[in-house]
Simulated assay, not measured.
Amino acid sequence: MDALKLLTPRAGLRVLVTGGASGIGLAIAKAFVATGARVHVCDVDGRAIDALATETPAITGTRANVADQADVARVFDDLQRELGGLDVLINNAGIAGPTGGIDAIEASEWEKTVSVNLNSHFYFSRLAVPLLRQAPDGGVIVFISSVAGRLGYGFRTPYSATKWAVVGLAKSLAIELGPDNIRVNAVQPGIVKGPRMEGVIAARAKQLGLTYEEMEARYLEKISLRRMVTQDEVAASVLFLSSPAGSAISGQALSVCGNVETL
């Protein structure tokens, strides 16, 4: 088979992207659409969902709080109506969580981070698996973890803990679902250029009494390539794992980070 064809996901794939109306999720959704996929997204931001319907009508959407099981069930009702099934689930939804020492973080902040970054991935996976078992070419689940899911991340413990947990969930489901021809992997983005990372850098700079520029320089010094990665680079890795070229890859955590050496 032509190598280029191997690198392109099959046209007509039915794809669900959580947290897909902005940021990395939107980049992933648009990348799939460009390959001829049919894409449904969910997002807590109703305005972003409305804007998506106007700007990118090829992508359908549902406003939903991914940490609410009733909302998750409603996403799947909409998915069935719009796509009639599912081939690929991208568990992307997540929040940055609080910045602070473990003794300064409120329990409510910890619980919210776990609910969005970990519990939601369980909620979506459990409802997606029966549909993925029916995917004609086998199903795919990709979890968006983080480089903070392979390295310790001081003062960002709720975020890091959930991102490590996501990798464990992906590797465990790969074992569980392999006999059903469902591949499961995780992608671990590094420092991704965009508004969300700008907020993280600003919060850390404030905590340490540094300027934004000084804090940004500290982050870049920890990356072998000395640059941030882009949302499109993350999206490309997700397409690869969902394509025929990734058909033998399961149970892996792929770090897309420019080689972040430490956090």
Rank of each mutant, 00 (worst) to 15 (best):
P136S: 04
G94E: 04
F124I: 10
Y153C: 12
Y123D: 04
F122H: 10
V142P: 08
E106K: 15
S125I: 00
T113I: 10
K112D: 12
R126W: 00
A135N: 08
A93F: 02
F124P: 02
K112E: 15
L151Q: 12
E111R: 14
G149E: 05
Y123W: 12
L132D: 07
K112P: 13
V116F: 01
T113A: 11
Y123F: 15
I141Q: 01
N92V: 07
V140D: 07
V142T: 10
L131K: 01
I144C: 01
N117F: 06
F122N: 01
I144N: 07
V140C: 15
S115E: 12
P98S: 11
W110D: 11
G100R: 10
V147G: 10
I141L: 07
S108N: 13
G154A: 14
Y123V: 02
G138F: 07
S145W: 04
G154W: 00
I102T: 15
G100F: 06
Y123M: 13
S125A: 15
A104S: 14
T99Q: 13
L118N: 09
N92T: 09
H121K: 13
I141H: 03
T113Q: 10
F155W: 13
F122T: 04
D137Y: 12
G138T: 08
S125R: 00
G139K: 01
T113R: 09
S120V: 12
P98G: 12
P130A: 06
V147Q: 14
I102D: 09
P136M: 06
G152H: 03
F155K: 12
R126M: 06
D103S: 12
I102V: 15
G149S: 06
S145N: 05
S145I: 07
I105Q: 06
V129M: 06
N119R: 10
A135K: 01
G138S: 09
G149Q: 04
L127R: 13
G154Y: 03
R150N: 08
G138N: 10
F124R: 06
I105D: 08
T99S: 11
I102R: 03
V129Y: 02
V116M: 02
G94I: 05
F155H: 11
Y123N: 06
R150W: 03
F143V: 02
I102K: 06
S108T: 15
E111V: 07
I102H: 08
D103G: 04
V142K: 02
V140Y: 05
F122P: 01
A107C: 08
A93V: 03
P98V: 11
